[in-house]
Write a protein that binds this DNA or RNA. Structure first.
Length: 144
DNA sequence: GCCAACGTTGGC
DNA sequence: GCCAACGTTGGC
């Protein structure tokens, strides 16, 4: 069961906006490694929603509601996007600083590849972050 | 505001 | 095909 993390600058697209809108196309990824992860996503997969730059915290969970399709914002038509829907907030957002303090999270791709905007999260990492965020650790795929 | 990491571009 | 220059991301 794949689990993911997606980054967004809150000035560009925030968790609050995601909650207000419900479902949103996750466009603008222009990195081939990140695009590969988008292509691997399946409907129902869960993703952490991470605020980069001014936020620097995992703030919520979204679910994939449409698998990879051509990104309408890419004029060349080479990159893909997915649609995600807000699932639930983390009652206590988990800051990057706290992730760095956790020995169990020391191998997270978030820490290893700072510039990657879409990445997989392991099951144990998922559970630890959920626990830190005061959220039930739902790993299983969301119902359709 | 600075800088490290790193992907891309372009000259050779 | 190499590599320097440059642009972008994102933490600090």
């Amino acid at each position: 069961m794949p689990l993911w993390l997606m980054k967004s600058e809150p000035e560009t697209w925030s968790w609050d906006q995601q909650v207000s809108k419900g479902t949103e196309a996750w466009t603008g990824v222009r990195n081939h490694q990140a695009a590969g992860f988008l292509k691997a996503m399946q409907v129902g997969d869960r993703c952490f929603f991470y605020h980069s730059n001014t936020g620097k915290a995992v703030v919520g969970i979204v679910t994939v509601v449409r698998g990879a399709y051509p990104d309408p914002t890419d004029p060349a038509g080479r990159f893909v996007c997915v649609d995600v829907a807000a699932d639930r907030p983390l009652p206590f957002p988990v800051p990057l600083a706290r992730i760095k303090e956790q020995p169990e999270l020391s191998a997270m791709m978030l820490l290893k590849q700072a510039r990657l905007s879409v990445m997989p999260v392991t099951g144990p990492e998922w559970d630890v972050v959920c626990r830190m965020g005061g959220c039930q650790a739902l790993r299983e795929r969301a119902p359709g």
